[in-house]
Design a protein around this nucleic acid. Sequence first.
DNA 1: CGCAATATTGACCATCATCAATTGGCGTGG
DNA 2: CCACGCCAATTGATGATGGTCAATATTGCG
Lengths: 250, 250
Amino acid sequence: MSEAFKSGPEQQRLLRKLESIAIITDDERQAVLDLPLTIRTYAPDQDIVRDGDRPSECCLVLDGFTFRYKLLTDGRRQILAFHTPGDIPDLQSLHLEVMDHSVAALVLTRVAFISHIDMNALCRRYSGLTAALWRDSLIDAAMFREWMVGLGRRSAHERIAHLLCEMTLRLAAVGLSDGRSSNLPITQVELGDALGLTAVHVNRVLQDLRRDGLITLSSSRLTVLDWKSLRRVGDFDPAYLHQNRPAEAL
Amino acid sequence: MSEAFKSGPEQQRLLRKLESIAIITDDERQAVLDLPLTIRTYAPDQDIVRDGDRPSECCLVLDGFTFRYKLLTDGRRQILAFHTPGDIPDLQSLHLEVMDHSVAALVLTRVAFISHIDMNALCRRYSGLTAALWRDSLIDAAMFREWMVGLGRRSAHERIAHLLCEMTLRLAAVGLSDGRSSNLPITQVELGDALGLTAVHVNRVLQDLRRDGLITLSSSRLTVLDWKSLRRVGDFDPAYLHQNRPAEAL
DNA sequence: CGCAATATTGACCATCATCAATTGGCGTGG
DNA sequence: CCACGCCAATTGATGATGGTCAATATTGCG
């Protein structure tokens, strides 16, 4: 269930991510490729890191999906983010000792762990990598801000349309969508917990979106039939994703 | 309206903030004290940085309050955060070229600007300062996460009680509250925009909290009469603030 | 003293929650 | 191969939280 690698294809995943958010020099590239990783696999709904933990390593998503969430004392759950391959969902643990939320696998997911010690050594030697990782954590925060707008001020229809736009774009950015159809293994309960809605209401809104010919969504397959309308309904502007290359194809 | 300083009491404000979140060496301390600042003053509701801007400097709150917000196309507003003296509300602009939200003064506010060039030079030379600032931006994100939980999953009463707890604690941390009574110049409209509620509903909930003897709030003065109950109503756990010294006095 | 911003009140209503039951898809074991 | 079981999706009925609209009171302040 757990294996250590030296310079396999897993490091490449991290490298591609970093190169997508900053310019990486040859030295830095090599240092990333030399990073020791520990690979582990998680079942759906299994926790990877828990609220209150004091992690000594960060996790990098390799295959599958993860999500971050917080639980209220009475069991209500708020999902804070969904993560795709290349993401480091608990990067913040590098500088915040104790976790203020949990990270779990959404589906069967392969994860690579990088020790904080190695990560810090890397950052101390290469200020370019520090900047890249810092920037990554800032984009993370930018996505929280946009979700706050949805939770606070958007209607259920707007929120759902917005999320579908965001996920399609993000999956396309890592080659997991052609911008039209994607594998999106998120249940309606999870959508509700992410968007501050009940699963029942999510269901009804999805039916509206289907009826209006905007999307198709069944057995984990999302297809955007009418990108323009979906984008309009969700009032979606991808600026907050801070992707350098504009998604002109969409 | 704008003045340049060398090593005045304004740098002290920044230093105290950094020392509250990380250990700072003597060299680093001196470097912060030598930081060139530009001081400006803003009227209530005046924008300091705007959504879409490409700032070349960061702003440090000296006196007063600021808030960050996003506007929807139809005018709805979501307030993302309130900031007190010592905070750097747009620190993320150091690594994200274009602003994805705006920063404005809540009341008459004095702000110090630090150029990105100076900031980056400082970070390149002192990795401890980089870590401190990075950590600060991660605490910022942690607060967004907690607010997301409120917006998505808490009732109006819970949200308001939670915010009042948070503000009291944060103001106490910078010496602007004794933990009981504080100057909190936030209108009910602004509270609503921060909490995803209407001003009318905020008004009604505040009346409940007053009637139940939890707080007193009028003419910008908040007094917590029953901290324990307020904390219980808001389901408030300050862990997400990542303050090192626990607020045992409360 | 008199505006202008903020707070407050009342009546009415919409969105979304709650509760409960049913359906459908799919993997598994007999 | 099919029945069972489980999980996710769907449907219906009902209701509460919080929104909307509009008027009035209060407060701060020049």
